[in-house]
Simulated scan of single mutants.
Amino acid sequence: MVLQADIPAPLAAFVDKIGNLLTVQLFALGAGISVYEGISHIADPSPIENITVNYLVLALSALFEGASWWLALATFRTVKGDLSYWDAIRRSKDPPSFIVLLEDSAALIGISIAALGIYLTDRLAASRRETA
């Protein structure tokens, strides 16, 4: 029994291209809003209103990224064998095995930097309020 495709190949390619286009536009919109918000907060700084929510979101992000990182590390350890991590990455024929690990590592570093930024913003703003 031969299964037929649900939609013809040219239409499937068109739908795929539209999906990719919408994805790029969504990320571009998010990046534009982030840049706008960053510039507006630099031009007119304001104190953090609810710091607990910020820390909660970062903690949940770190928890989920950490779980993904742990699984990626366990998987990569089985793939790398006796090689060092760097040699295993350079010789690997299976990029997803280490790309997920590197991406999750970068995400955890970014979460740590964001938490440090929120902490310093709160502490420095508190010291400015006390001296004023």
Rank of each mutant, 00 (worst) to 15 (best):
W70N: 09
D6Q: 10
K80L: 02
S105Q: 00
M1S: 13
A28V: 08
F64T: 12
S40D: 08
L3S: 04
D16P: 05
P10Q: 05
G30F: 10
A43S: 08
A125L: 06
S46A: 07
I39G: 03
G38C: 03
A12F: 00
I42T: 15
S127F: 13
A126H: 14
S61E: 01
P8F: 07
L58K: 13
A74F: 11
W69R: 12
A132W: 06
D122G: 05
A114P: 06
V35N: 05
L124G: 07
V100H: 09
I118K: 02
V24Y: 09
Y36L: 14
K93M: 00
I113L: 15
L63K: 01
V15L: 15
T121C: 06
V2G: 05
S127W: 10
P96I: 00
A12K: 05
A13I: 04
E65G: 05
L108A: 01
D16C: 08
V24T: 12
L73H: 04
L21C: 05
A43D: 05
Y55I: 11
P96N: 01
P45M: 10
V53L: 13
W69K: 07
L29A: 15
F76E: 01
D104L: 02
G81P: 00
L120N: 15
G38E: 13
L116K: 09
Q25P: 01
R90P: 00
K80F: 03
A115D: 02
G110S: 09
G38K: 04
L26Q: 15
L60G: 09
S97Y: 06
H41Y: 10
D94K: 01
G38L: 12
A125D: 15
P45N: 02
I7D: 07
Y119W: 11
Y36I: 09
K93C: 01
P45S: 08
L29E: 13
P8C: 07
L83R: 11
